[in-house]
């Protein structure tokens, strides 16, 4: 079996050892589960470090032994505290915390705010250096309230397919922000299924009663919901200056660049209008490869929009 890299094992061990030392005695299973390591790996690594030490080996540096599924730890001398937070870990915690502080309903003086303050202080910093600006519209706030109260709402929604807004009955389960836009996963009463809606396309919202449907056990996680296989795919050829497109949107694959730096990108397209907008914003830095029926989409859209600019006003 392939071994995990030494650095990864050591990093985990340096987190596990202080915890074990504080407990003194703990079952192998509990420790393995808590730290997401295999039981065999844990036993092997603990036995290994128990043999570590410095000449002349008079006292044990890490006094650990394992017997009948239990770990026993003697008087600790070294590795009694976890390693300081690394730069990457500090970022992870502070960025997650700062972002969560801006979600609707966050308490500016609550436990999260206090925890973030203590971490920044522990790092010796008085400024976290991060600002997460995720403007939330009133509709996002209202939807969060609706989710909390388990209600059904009627919304006026402008889908990217329809010419005019339509009324829909929704039972929202989750609101989330991804790539700068807010979405909700909701039960759509008319199609009787889980659908995703862009919140900035909800023109108005009114509560009309209690929700009747339970939230499904698993909800698509933010960021991966475009993976839905039902959504139509297109293949585009994109110039180097159109790079922002495949950095910005979730794409299935990006080919290695050709001699001129152009790449082929496969991505999900939720509607023809969405594709047209994307193509126009890329201008001559993009070509549709597949499906062939879409190859004219860019020039058709460009001609139509140009029509607006030729009318004298």
């Amino acid at each position: 079996m392939a071994q995990r890299p030494a650095t990864e094992r050591l990093r985990r061990l340096l987190i596990i050892l202080p915890w074990l030392m504080e407990r003194g005695e703990v079952s192998v299973d509990e420790a393995a589960e808590r730290f997401s390591v295999g039981v065999d790996d844990l036993i092997r690594d603990l036995e290994l470090v128990s043999m570590c030490g410095l000449p002349p080996y008079v006292d044990e540096m890490i006094d650990v032994f394992i017997d009948e599924g239990m770990i026993f730890v003697g008087i600790p001398r070294l590795f009694t505290r976890p390693l300081r937070l690394s730069e990457v870990e500090a970022f992870e915690l502070l960025a997650a915390g700062r972002a969560a502080m801006q979600l609707p309903g966050a308490d500016p003086d609550g436990a999260l705010a206090r925890g973030l303050g203590k971490i920044a202080m522990g790092l010796g910093e008085d400024d976290m250096g991060l600002l997460v600006v995720a403007p939330t519209s009133e509709i996002v706030q209202e939807l969060s309230q609706v989710i909390e109260n388990r209600q059904r709402v009627e919304v006026r929604y402008q889908s990217s397919k329809d010419v005019a807004p339509t009324d829909r009955l929704l039972e929202p389960f989750v609101v989330f922000s991804s790539q700068g836009n807010w979405y909700t996963h909701a039960h759509d009463v008319s199609s009787d299924g889980l659908r995703t809606f862009r919140i900035d396309r909800i023109e108005s919202l009114s509560v009309i009663g209690q929700a009747e449907n339970e939230a499904p056990d698993s909800m698509p996680e933010p960021g991966i919901w475009f993976a839905d296989a039902d959504i139509e795919r297109v293949k585009l050829r994109v110039a180097p200056r159109g790079r922002w497109m495949y950095e910005r949107y979730p794409v299935d694959e990006v080919s290695p660049p050709d001699a001129d730096g152009w790449v082929e990108v496969r991505l999900a397209v939720t509607s023809h209008q969405w594709l047209e907008r994307l193509l126009l914003r890329l201008g001559d830095a993009v070509e549709v490869v597949d499906p062939t029926s879409m190859r004219v989409a860019r020039s058709e859209a460009a001609a139509r929009v140009l029509g607006r600019y030729s009318v004298k006003r």
Partner: peptide, 26 residues
């Protein structure tokens, strides 16, 4: 409760972060 709030924050923003998990364990 402060550690739990950090866990919820990570779950809401970086659900699959191994580094975040290790930081929480520390």
């Amino acid at each position: 409760d402060e550690v739990r709030a950090l866990q919820v924050a990570l779950a809401a923003t970086r659900p699959d972060s191994v580094i975040g998990e290790e930081a929480l364990l520390k």
